[in-house]
Amino acid sequence: MSQNTIQVDALESEAIFIFREVVAQFEKPVLLFSGGKDSITLVRLAQKAFYPAKIPFPLLHIDTGHNFPETIEFRDRLAKELGVELIVRNVQDNIDSGRVKEETGRYASRNMLQTETLLDAIEEFGFDACIGGARRDEEKARAKERIFSVRDDFGQWDEKNQRPEVFDMLNGKIDLGQNVRVFPISNWTELDVWSYIEQENIEIPSIYFAHKRKIFVRDGMIWSADDDVVFRDEEEEVVERMVRFRTVGDMSCTAAVLSDAVDIVKVVEEIRDSSISERGARIDDKRSEAAMEKRKQQGYF
């Protein structure tokens, strides 16, 4: 195709269309930014949707306090470069005030506690649309998610009674107190995201690439031993390996994979050949078969 002609790729075009619908249909949208590759991809798509204007909504990060330091550093720099407002709300505040109780034990994680902080932030700022990077290929409850997903003021997902979503028409009409979760990259696969990052030359946090790290192995999964966030038994042996993270969630629930993919080209190759699903390294999904659905009903994003 000549340089003079533009044919926007179907997935990219769809995502940009969704972003523009959000801005046209809602008064106070926000982009839920975790510092992970999916939300970084969202930021690039939002940039494209409104260029040459700035992204017309803030980024919101629900910080568990257990994020990888690389992610936090990356987050702050990106927001500054784009001139976008960054709102950070801390799970720690709710723990300190006794509103939520922290889990203890081997698999303790602050992942679940994010929900409460998110719902508080939605109320505090009056957000009516929260844009997230969830994809339908990630997990089977997410496979059922609409692009505009209506939540009540408890953040609950009524999975048996979702609005029909036909063609590309998106119904963003809501009652007072309701809000909508919006998923512009619903139809992307993990490989689509990685290929896009490669094609667009998008910068991502360094922990996505293979690096030397002190780790220990439990139940066949690789955990970071570089910090004191992940609970480790005395007898669990610490070794140093080349690893990378395939998803970047809370450190306490994100396991690493052995890898020598040090750059984006190698990462894309690795994903293409992988025999383990992306969320196979997420202990929060392994709690039960319905783990994701239950969290979503309670307002998890």
Binding site: I6, Q7, S13, I16, R20, Y51
Partner: peptide
């Protein structure tokens, strides 16, 4: 015809782009 930071002569169907017009006419959503 604009897509992100580039200008194009032609845009194909299915593409999410931005278009500017010669005249200052009234166009809204």
């Amino acid at each position: 015809i604009n897509f992100f930071d580039k200008e194009y002569q032609v845009a194909k169907r299915g593409s999410s782009v931005s278009i500017t017009l010669e005249d200052n006419v009234n166009v809204s959503r």
